[in-house]
Design a protein around this nucleic acid. Structure first.
Lengths: 193, 193
DNA sequence: TTAAATATTGAACATCTGTTCATTAAAATC
DNA sequence: GATTTTAATGAACAGATGTTCAATATTTAA
């Protein structure tokens, strides 16, 4: 029974809450570690016992949000939940819904003064979903000179490209529009333009 | 004749040189503004007269490097220099050469503790080259329900996806491999997998 | 060459960072 | 419940940040 010390849980919770409270008031880059600690009533030294930067704290939230993304694809009753862009029905794509749901959050993730870490977390998330799809759907086999790594990276980041464009329009387009765009792009590309 | 004040030029040059000197010794994140100013023999207050963060200084270098990317596509004697992935001959793609040439630099750009700004600069660069190709090559017309914005963002970021994968393997693959992978992926996608 | 314009400087300030350490408090284990 | 283990605290430190200001130096324009 290897449970985490209660004090650690309490401290982290207090820091999480403090960060959330402050994020409502101002962007992450304007929040200092000292401020978070004051708000959380936690000694500043204690913060450094658990994290190196405020970004580490933010990262813990991201983990939870990534869980939501993964779970979208774990629904057992969903017949086709493939992310593979070669056999993709845009209605099965849950990513844009996921982004929409956590819009507030992704506004931070995509803001320009934030470290690349978060971007990579999203990238890795989509990448691994894609990679799983590609390797599991054996019926669809690729030219064997294509590296699955490069292929997944290409497709994953292409989707994030759409999300960046979406973000830059302040997410004003609907999820449906995004799904349609993706479907149209894939169709267009396949037919050779 | 609206020339910049000589003093400004001198100051910026000193700061540029100082940053370069320090970047050889340690990563950007470990370099402080105070340190740059000491090295450049420039008053710290002066730094803030021109920049907000050390990242702004780094950004100025990036502009120059982006110039190289643009110029690759401006060579007038190159018959087809299209970036349009629908009519792409990988030999005409200069991007991977460009990245290779500035490898040292892009190692910083893609490192995880660096702000997203640089990523966006690269993205915007590729995006605008792509967008220009797509709108200029009229013979190739897309389904008109596709937004050029989304389409360009998709394609531009897909290419960066390859670069991320490349970076993560510490750029150990050759430019040729990257060009081949891109060609293979595009061919594979078009033929419907 | 002189006068006007403006960039740089040094000094100061409150605040933040990252780290250390002995002390205190709380939790886990017996 | 007492004991051991470990987390949290407060205080202190050198250094960094971001800002302001009057004084000075350099450049530009007349």
């Amino acid at each position: 029974m290897r449970t985490t010390d209660l004090r650690i849980i309490k401290t982290k919770q207090a820091l999480h809450n403090a960060l959330l409270t402050l994020l409502i008031q101002k962007p992450l880059e304007q929040i200092s570690i000292a401020e978070i600690c004051r708000e959380a009533k936690v000694n500043r030294g204690t913060f450094y016992l658990h994290y190196e930067q405020k970004e580490g704290l933010f990262e813990e939230y991201f983990q939870e949000i990534m869980e939501d993304l993964y779970q979208s694809y774990e629904e057992p009753y969903r017949a086709v939940t493939t992310l593979d862009t070669n056999q993709l029905d845009p209605n099965t794509i849950r990513i844009f819904h996921h982004i929409e749901r956590y819009k507030m959050f992704y506004r931070i993730v995509f803001s320009k003064n934030v470290p690349l870490t978060y971007y990579y977390m999203l990238f890795d998330g989509i990448y691994s979903l894609l990679e799983r799809d590609i390797t599991s759907h054996h019926e669809h086999q690729m030219a064997d000179n294509i590296s699955i790594g490069y292929y997944s990276a290409y497709q994953a980041n292409a989707i994030i490209g759409l999300i960046i464009q979406w973000y830059r329009g302040d997410f004003s387009d609907s999820v449906t529009v995004l799904n349609q765009q993706l479907a149209a792009i894939l169709k267009n590309v396949r037919s050779g333009g």
